[in-house]
């Protein structure tokens, strides 16, 4: 297929995934902000949203400093601000532009999912949204990614277009999970102070919620929420679809499918396997031993390297 087509598909699914992730992060922040401070409601929750979303620089440029990260500012900046290149609105814009450029490679159901959401998006206000509106908006965004993924899985031929789409989704998902962990790693670090107070619980639960894994946690560990288990679930647990290990399992599979179809393995496949190896051959104790922060930073940088390899090998 055309390199440009593959590139468009890859970024299309990345942006859909990113929009979904941003919506979840906002959702969680909103929940935490309802909480009384004694239960973990915190005053810096909204600035941590900006950090997690990876758009701190743009935010500071617009508002002067992170101190301005009020609920109102952050919500309007992340959700609908046309000036923020990675606002949810812009994710949809880019996704639709990409989809339009490669309509021939999408099924009509996939196009419909993107295009009708794009049309619906125009019904949301440009101004700061009320909480009701925000709730409705976030539900709409999550719905869109579900529809899109569903359409993709139900209707797309299992060929290179599909594998590039999957690759985009999992690259973005791995990056997002890692970012959430990176911003929140301090709440996961084993502390000397007593573990299990209400503050910690809500913070940990919020991490799980942001990747919609709270229920999964209980199923997997049959235990109360503990920080190292949260880290284990999101980093190493292959059964958890948003974990780094699971993303890399999917990535190596998709990249191998592409390599099989084209009859040639390349640097992208090798790097993906190496990273996957690092995720499968460790225990969570090893991770904490090296330092959670270092581990995650290394992962984010490895993930970016893989992105560069994929681009080099296929998309240009």
């Amino acid at each position: 297929m055309l390199s440009r087509t593959a590139d468009n598909i890859y970024w299309l699914t990345r942006y859909v995934e990113r929009a979904d992730c941003l919506a979840r992060i906002l959702d969680v922040a909103q929940r935490l902000s309802y909480l009384p401070v004694t239960y973990g409601g915190s005053t810096n929750e909204w600035s941590s949203v900006v950090l997690t979303a990876g758009c701190a620089d743009q935010f500071v440029e617009k508002y002067g400093s992170l101190d301005q990260a009020s609920e109102e500012n952050v919500v309007s900046f992340i959700a609908l601000d046309p000036e923020n290149p990675t606002s949810i609105r812009n994710c949809f814009e880019v996704a639709r532009t990409n989809a339009r450029s490669v309509r021939t490679a999408l099924t009509s159901e996939m196009w419909d999912a993107i295009n009708s959401s794009w049309i619906e998006l125009r019904g949301f206000p440009d101004r700061a949204m009320t909480r009701d509106e925000l709730t409705r908006f976030l539900a709409f965004v999550k719905e869109t990614s579900l529809r899109f993924d569903g359409a993709m899985h139900r209707t797309m031929l299992r060929n290179d277009a599909f594998w590039f789409a999957r690759t985009g989704t999992h690259m973005e998902r791995a990056d997002n999970t890692a970012r959430i962990l990176d911003v929140k790693y301090h709440v996961l670090l084993p502390e000397k102070e007593k573990v299990g107070g209400p503050l910690d619980y809500f913070q940990w639960a919020s991490i799980l919620r942001s990747v919609s894994a709270l229920t999964a946690f209980h199923w997997v560990y049959r235990d109360s929420v503990k920080p190292w288990l949260v880290a284990d679930l999101l980093i190493l647990n292959r059964a958890m679809p948003r974990s780094l290990a699971s993303c890399y399992e999917a990535l190596t599979t998709s990249l191998d499918d592409i390599a099989d179809a084209y009859g040639r393995q390349g640097p992208a496949q090798r790097l993906a396997r190496t990273i996957r190896g690092r995720l499968t051959n460790q225990t969570i104790d090893d991770v904490f031993h090296t330092g959670l922060h270092e581990f995650i930073s290394n992962f984010i940088s490895d993930n970016n390297k893989l992105g560069a390899e994929i681009t080099e090998q296929y998309l240009t």
Binding site: M1, L2, S3, A6, D160, F164, Y262
Partner: peptide, 17 residues
């Protein structure tokens, strides 16, 4: 699009994966 094509030795190619 134009950028997907290139010409080498008077033969037109498209850039594919």
């Amino acid at each position: 699009e134009g950028r997907d094509l290139f010409v080498k030795d008077n033969i037109v190619f498209m850039r594919t994966t």
